[in-house]
Amino acid sequence: MRVAVLKSYGEPLELQKISEPNVADHGVVVDVEACGICRSDWHAWQGHGEWANDQVPLGQILGHEPAGHIVDVGADVTALDVGDRVAVPFNLGDGTCHQCRNGHGNVCIDGYALGFEETVPGAFAEQIHVPHAAFNLTRLPDEVTMDAAAALGCRYVTAFHALAHRVSLTGGEWVAVHGCGGLGLAAVQIASALGAGVVAVDVRDAPLSMAGDVGADATVRADEESVPDAIDDVTNGGAHVSIDALGRAETCRNSLASLRARGTHVQLGLTTDAERGEFALPIDQVTRWDVSFLGSRGMPPSRYDELLRLVQSGRVDPGALVTNRVALSDVSNRLAAMTEYETHGIEVVTEF
């Protein structure tokens, strides 16, 4: 089968032919029909994360937003069948640790990060092996296309988990989203679907236009006006929830400064080598105004059905953010385009 391999940081991925994966007793093999190209793939391609002991090793098959159908089932797997259409989370749990047993499989103590570590080769490939499949996989409703399921990837599930589970967003609250890449746009659409007012922030017109199309009530050009002041004006006192979906010091500080008293900042974006995992933050402001600072990563596999019900209902439409469908051979160029923020929406590999 064909795969795209990280051979050197920042250089084109190498297309290789390798053997199809073998199935473990607890796993399944999935034929990949679509896989999103995510900014987290870009971070891995750039070699980021060494400051957090999280650098993706050379030789890794990248890709972590797949959807497809099962072609082989392990001997111990009884809940899934060959032919099942499935969504595959990037944060794979083993289903046995304390976190998994308590509904937090996205932070499994012995978990796997699909496409980011040697034990779980990624989905820029014709097929992948998914361990502990009965715990990790969710059947896709017929109404959800493979493109849309790949767009759910890590972006929609991360945004949904942050807003629905970490924050428990309430209808009528205001949400500010700083950075309108795929993750930020997913957060805009989900916040709107959950009944919140949404302010979208970026420095580019195309993503802000898309944000308006998928639910933003107002947009702010961060390079043309004071972000906190603009959000204060729109929301009459500041956002209840503010998300940094980019991972830069400026967007994080703007997010905190955009909150009203007792508001909640959620950090979703990962840092680059400019910040190397650390920001200087206005801690006195956080203390003075009783502000909460949360992190969030992926979503527990056991809760995928909540988001899929929103997709089935039409209230959330991940397909609306798919702007480009490409071949596996195009992935390197699309990752390079992310360096200068030349992409918008969600791009998906559909030809392997």
Rank of each mutant, 00 (worst) to 15 (best):
T323Y: 06
T323Q: 11
D330C: 07
A79T: 08
A320E: 07
E173K: 09
E351S: 13
D202E: 05
G184K: 09
W51V: 08
L15K: 13
V130H: 05
N254R: 14
D41R: 07
L194Q: 06
V144G: 02
A211R: 06
I18P: 01
C252R: 13
P21C: 13
F352D: 01
A159K: 12
V77R: 03
G215N: 08
E347Q: 13
R297T: 14
C35M: 11
G195V: 03
Q127R: 15
H240W: 02
N236R: 12
S258L: 09
D232L: 12
H265F: 15
G172T: 06
T96P: 00
Y9C: 09
Q60Y: 01
V286C: 15
L259V: 12
H240N: 11
M1G: 10
T119D: 06
Y9L: 09
E143N: 10
V322M: 10
L15P: 10
A148V: 01
Y341C: 03
T170K: 15
G215M: 11
R204D: 04
V286N: 07
R309M: 06
V188W: 06
V286P: 03
R85M: 08
P301C: 09
V167C: 13
I70A: 09
P121W: 11
K7C: 12
D244P: 04
N136D: 04
D54I: 01
A337G: 04
E340S: 12
E225K: 01
D94E: 07
A230M: 05
